[in-house]
Amino acid sequence: WFFEVCFAVTESLNTTNSSTKIEPKQMKVLFFEDCVCATITSTILQTLNSKVSWDRFGLSIKDVQVTDTGIALIEWEGPAQLESILLVLHRYRSSQTMLQSWSRETQLCKRCIEDALNDLKQQNPHLFCSHSSKELQRYVPDLSCCLSKLISSSSDIEFKDSCAQILGLQSTDYNDIRSSITTRLLQVIEDLDKQ
């Protein structure tokens, strides 16, 4: 089997109401077999529904349906800035392949979809941050606050200067330290998430 996967997503430019409630949106999935548009197979539907690790990309799948025309509609939830997702899958077979292996097909399809999501994530880490990283980000304000209080309240001038130096700061002001630590922690979480 060979798979080609392409995602086309749109990002909303209006992020002012991003804090309001998240409503499920619909992802259209088009399937092509040997370059011809075809009805999506049950194996691929199953892969989309239960094999792909959507949570690693900050997405949750709520429902999967197939229309009369063979197009799959996936109800999803994710970041508010993510407006729409279109997925196109192309499957074809090498002429030498004699046996069909459904488990192999599932593995390949899953890997290809996740690779395409990863391609999106590398370019747009803010849109495809994993659920676990979002969880970690919640601790950043508290941790930054705690660390900067520890540093700025110290009476050891040498220690304070050394901390400021490590952070690349000129001052040992509480707000400067907190802001620097916050930025650094968020960057580390984003970098690890991309890996």
């Binding site: 090498s94 290809c112 979809i113």
Partner: peptide, 11 residues
């Protein structure tokens, strides 16, 4: 704005 992510995999 539209973003594109793509991949290929084969056995």
């Amino acid at each position: 704005s539209i973003k594109i992510g793509k991949a290929f995999s084969g056995s």
